[in-house]
Simulated assay, not measured.
Amino acid sequence: MKIHDIVAANFSDVFEENLRTEICNNGILKFVEPDKIILDVRTDIEFIPLIVSGIVKVKRRDGKGNGIFLHYLAEKQTSAIAITYAIESKKSEIRLKTESNVTYIAIPAKVVISWLLKYSTWRTFYFKFNQQQTAFLIEKINDIAFENLEFRLLKYLEYTSLITNDNTINKKHFDIARDLKVSREAISRILEKLKKQDIVNLGRNKITIN
């Protein structure tokens, strides 16, 4: 499909016609395989991804190998955090990495910023995800500060299942541990406990929520 067809099919109910035309004229349609970095830390934000299909993981990284999972981006979404960095002319402090095959439209950051003044639907779009993604950050801080690891792990599994629309989560224990910033042994121990409680079933590199 051409970009005009994709924008019409996916964003006619979100953006006005003039804005959709600008998306087509300024955006570049990209198709990316799983496990690819769309935006990395310590880089200038040259474009903003508008997700058409697939799932993108957002992580906070310090550039020294340390990071923690924040949330996912799915279809008809964008990273409000990345837009905010671009508005403030800051380098990225997050990593956007594909979890599946992803189709997205790469739009120059300067163009995206100009839309905040020109189009009310874009302002609404940005503020919606800015509020939502800020709420994710606050919730993440609360969970780390006040909730035990079993609660955090279950919440992570349920959220991933909801985003992927699949009760089976294809992840290694190591990858989950890295997302939650804990040891692999701790994740494996809790998963075995949840298995005994018949909350999950465990397979090779996969977890099924009952």
Rank of each mutant, 00 (worst) to 15 (best):
K2S: 14
H4L: 09
H4D: 12
H4K: 15
V7T: 02
V7M: 01
A8G: 11
A8Y: 09
N10F: 04
N10H: 08
F11T: 01
S12N: 12
D13S: 14
E17N: 13
E17L: 09
L19S: 07
T21Q: 14
I23K: 01
C24G: 08
N25L: 11
N26R: 14
N26M: 09
G27L: 01
I28F: 12
L29Y: 01
L29P: 00
V32T: 08
D35A: 08
K36T: 15
K36L: 07
I37H: 14
I37R: 10
L39T: 04
L39W: 04
V41K: 09
V41N: 08
V41Y: 12
R42W: 11
R42D: 15
R42N: 15
T43L: 14
T43E: 15
E46M: 10
E46D: 13
E46I: 12
F47H: 09
I48L: 03
P49M: 02
S53D: 04
S53L: 00
V56A: 01
K59Y: 13
R60S: 11
R61D: 14
D62R: 04
K64C: 12
F69D: 02
A74D: 05
T78H: 13
T78N: 14
A82Y: 01
T84P: 05
A86T: 04
K90W: 09
K91E: 14
K91F: 11
S92T: 01
E93S: 12
R95T: 15
L96T: 02
E99W: 03
N101K: 13
V102M: 00
V102G: 00
V102S: 00
T103I: 06
T103G: 05
Y104E: 00
I105V: 04
I105A: 01
I107T: 00
K110W: 08
K110A: 13
K110R: 10
V111K: 08
I113N: 02
I113W: 02
S114F: 09
L117Q: 12
S120R: 13
T121D: 10
T121K: 07
W122N: 04
T124P: 05
Y126P: 01
Y126A: 03
N130M: 12
Q133P: 01
T134G: 14
L137C: 10
L137E: 07
K140E: 07
I141C: 06
E147V: 06
E147P: 03
E147C: 09
N148D: 13
N148M: 05
L149H: 03
E150L: 07
R152F: 03
L153C: 03
K155S: 14
Y156C: 04
Y156W: 10
L157I: 03
E158N: 14
S161V: 06
I163Y: 06
N165L: 12
N165A: 09
N165C: 12
N167M: 14
N167C: 09
T168H: 03
K171D: 02
K172I: 04
K172H: 08
H173D: 13
I176G: 00
A177S: 06
A177L: 06
D179C: 04
K181P: 10
K181D: 15
S183A: 10
S183Y: 07
E185D: 10
E185T: 09
A186Q: 09
A186H: 10
I187R: 02
S188H: 10
R189Q: 11
I190G: 00
E192Q: 13
L194H: 02
L194F: 02
K196F: 07
K196A: 15
K196V: 10
Q197V: 06
V200A: 03
V200W: 00
N201P: 05
L202W: 05
K206C: 11
I207N: 00
